[in-house]
């Protein structure tokens, strides 16, 4: 099996990242926006691992572990926020949440 060229792997990571970015910009559902953020973080981690495997270093994988730790913390907070917002507003549309303090009519 040939070694995989770094440019192609980075291209895949860039495509995954742009797909996540497109999803984040296009979708208005909070759940889908969180999903798109996960895709982008995953693509960034893929880029780290690609670089680490290119230079035969373990640093890329270490950075991926930190990224995955951060993603876990972020998704826990984000989904708790989603639950709170759902209990305050009957929708998951972010455009309905354009006011601070819970979006009441103040």
């Amino acid at each position: 099996m040939n070694p995989i060229p770094m440019e192609q792997s980075l291209m895949v990571a860039a495509m995954l990242f742009s797909l996540g970015l497109i999803g984040l910009l296009v979708r208005r559902n909070v759940i889908f926006m969180l999903i798109s953020i996960e895709i982008m973080l995953n693509a960034a981690g893929l880029a780290f691992v690609v670089a680490g495997s290119h230079w035969q270093a373990a640093d890329g994988q270490v950075m991926f572990l930190f990224i995955i730790t951060m993603a876990a913390a972020e998704v826990a907070i984000g989904l708790a926020l989603v639950l709170r917002l759902q209990s305050d507003l009957p929708t998951l549309d972010v455009d309905a949440m354009d006011q601070l303090k819970g979006g009441d009519d103040a």
Binding site: S9, L46, V50, S53, L65, I68, A72
Partner: peptide, 18 residues
């Protein structure tokens, strides 16, 4: 992809955690 890039540890972590 991680497995093919020669990074089996993060491949397992990706499956387990992500």
């Amino acid at each position: 992809l991680f497995l093919q890039l020669g990074a089996p540890f993060v491949a397992a972590i990706e499956v387990i955690v992500y």
